[in-house]
Design a protein around this nucleic acid. Structure first.
Length: 556
RNA sequence: GCGCCUGUAGCUCAGCGGAUAGAGCGCAGCCCUGCGAAGGCUGAAGUCGUGAGUUCAAAUCUCACCAGGCGCACCA
């Protein structure tokens, strides 16, 4: 059992005992929280329960606290329970408990930190899902990192996670891209064909056209325009998806499913879902177009699903896509990570979910605020349309994938952030990302040295770990499962890097004060015990880094 | 105009209704002929945007205002 649960149970038991003896009156429903106080003088764990009960019990908090403390059950793991401050109960654990955790963590190995709070839940995370019309630009990196970080967390919490990229291969933008590709292809063939009115002016399209031209020997140049465009669709799409996939893989993001929008039409699901909505009265015809009647569900206005020109809107296929997620694949929870520029899409998607009879609690949309980038003291604006692309690839090559992941992961999705490129490059060695990785490398180094010296610490006695900084380090490490649960529950991946920094700090302080490998033969028992602690710390930091999708270097 | 998000140290950002608000960078110092100094220690630095309210307790919840971001398409 998790120590926090164990302590919560003990508090419940103590409270019930005090009430049974008539020392405390009964109280209504309440939640007992066990917190880890910031200040170590306040014990290892604390609860503010007496403060919360004061009102209903009509008693002073310190008196309630004293009654609970008096009735607190005996527990070998607990060293001390006391009333503190205005009515807190501070709990200090026995060293023996911390010592035993070192062995438990070593036994758990890379499984350490996993919990079962989301076990049995089938969760889909859809993120990035950028139009497959070119390479990812830096603005997309944040959603990519947040989405994948969340996926890792939910998986650690026991969920069955599907990481999914929705490929908009059936929309307008793809059409615009392919028309641009056609013009570039014709240019490669030597014809003076201008770019279409709306186009993707980026150089990469010309390069792709050149490649395709060389591959097929220019055969498409003789075809009628529409036929050539149709023929260019597939090679263009494949090239763009390859670019996107490579960039994401370099950010350590591997998807389980690449879901094609076009497949919704090929399978007939688009028509059946639209029919379903129409039968339920949610589709109305007006001004030559078909509308989803969001207003029936309390929204400000209706939204077009089929344009008067005949084509479907992005919204239309997204409705069908979400119907597929819930009704075909039966996800218990669907989390979409979108950029804040998709804000306007949220309310109508929620309305659509309601119309489809989907439990609104099962669809969570995370909007990550857009990132602005700063260089030479000036804010940069990126626009595919204006041919000013700084790609994810540029960013990775500039500051490194680990630093990119750390930077985006350590901030809440809703915070508006500015990415200072100069700072990221110049101060890279000072970046906290290296603080964590350095800690891991240092631990690896110690273990390496121990092996070289022929020390076998398997029989190390952890009860020799009594130094304040040893216990403090174990205390930090053991919090990982709680961090995973809380971060997964609140969908806040930024808690992991902050926690990891704290573990690294505890480690460095321990390292500074406690020599692990000694030249003195008499110190061998302590060395062996500390090697076990070093191993446990390495396991914890490596787990944090893996949750963050970052490398855990043995050397730096 | 309406809606959502944000405002915490010089900068970039954490912060779970609780105890003396934290970290990194930057700044002023100290510490390696001992396992990696990409480290440790000390210090300076804060009207938690402003004002009110709820509460035993507010950076955290509510309201108003100020400032910024985003959205309010037969774009995605």
């Amino acid at each position: 059992m998790r120590i926090t649960d164990q302590l919560r149970d003990a508090v419940v038991e103590a409270l019930a005992a005090a009430q049974g003896q008539g020392v405390l009156p009964s109280a209504g429903a309440f939640e007992i929280t066990i917190e880890q106080p910031r200040d170590q003088g306040h014990g290892d764990f604390a609860t503010s329960l007496p403060l919360k009960l004061a009102r209903t019990m009509k008693m002073a908090p310190p008196i309630i606290a004293a009654a609970i403390v008096d009735a607190f059950p005996d527990d070998a793991d607990v060293k001390n329970v006391e009333v503190a401050g205005p009515g807190f109960i501070n709990i200090t654990l026995a060293d023996a408990w911390f010592q035993s955790q070192v062995e438990a963590i070593r036994a758990a190995g890379s499984e350490f930190g996993n919990t079962d709070s989301k076990t049995g839940q089938k969760i889909q995370l859809e993120f990035v899902s950028v139009n497959p019309t070119g390479p990812l630009h830096v603005g997309h990196a944040r959603g990519a990192v947040i989405g994948s970080g969340l996926a890792n967390l939910l998986e650690a919490a026991g969920a069955d996670v599907t990481r999914e990229y929705y490929v908009n291969d059936a929309g307008n933008q793809m059409r615009v891209y392919t028309e641009t590709l056609y013009s570039r292809y014709m240019q490669a063939a030597g014809y003076d064909v201008p770019l279409p009115e709306t186009s993707y002016p980026g150089e990469y399209v010309a390069e792709q056209a050149q490649q395709i031209f060389e591959d097929d020997g220019g055969a498409l140049a003789d075809l009628p325009k529409e036929e050539a465009i149709a023929a260019l669709y597939k090679p263009g799409l494949e090239r763009n998806l390859a670019l996107i996939k490579t960039d994401l893989e370099d950010l350590n993001i591997i998807y389980d499913v690449w879901f094609s929008e076009q497949s919704l039409f090929d399978s007939g699901r688009f028509d059946t879902t639209m029919k379903e909505l129409e039968d339920d009265g949610f589709i109305v015809d007006r001004d030559g177009a078909r509308w989803f009647a969001s207003t029936q569900l309390g929204e400000d206005k209706d939204n077009v699903v089929i344009r008067s020109s005949g084509g479907h809107t992005y919204f239309a296929s997204d409705i069908v896509y979400h119907a597929e997620k819930f009704k075909e694949r039966n996800f218990d929870q669907v989390i979409d990570v979108w950029g804040a520029d998709h804000h306007g899409h949220v309310a109508r998607m929620n309305a659509a979910a309601k119309a489809l009879g989907i439990d609104p609690d099962k669809l969570t949309i995370i909007l990550n605020q857009l990132v602005s980038f700063k260089e030479d003291g000036e804010s940069l604006r990126f626009s595919k349309r204006k041919n000013v692309i700084v790609t994810v690839r540029d960013l990775i090559e500039d500051v490194g994938a680990d630093a990119v992941r750390y930077t985006f992961l350590s901030r809440g999705a809703e915070s508006q952030m500015e990415f200072d490129l100069d700072l990221a490059r110049k101060q890279s060695p000072e970046n906290p990302v290296y603080y964590i990785q350095y800690a891991h490398a240092r631990l690896s180094g110690i273990l390496r040295n121990a092996v070289e010296k022929g020390i076998d610490w398997a029989d190390g006695d952890v009860s020799l770990l009594t130094h304040d900084l040893e216990i403090a380090l174990v205390r930090q490490i053991t919090a990982l499962p709680d961090v995973v649960d809380r971060a997964a529950d609140r969908l806040e991946p930024q808690q992991v890097p902050h926690y990891a920094t704290e573990v690294a700090r505890a480690l460095q302080r321990f390292y500074d004060a406690c020599r692990v490998i000694s030249e003195n033969e008499d110190d061998l028992p302590v060395s062996k015990a500390r090697l076990k602690l070093v191993e446990a710390a390495q396991i914890a930091i490596a787990r944090c880094l893996s949750l963050m999708g970052m490398n855990a270097p043995e050397r730096m």
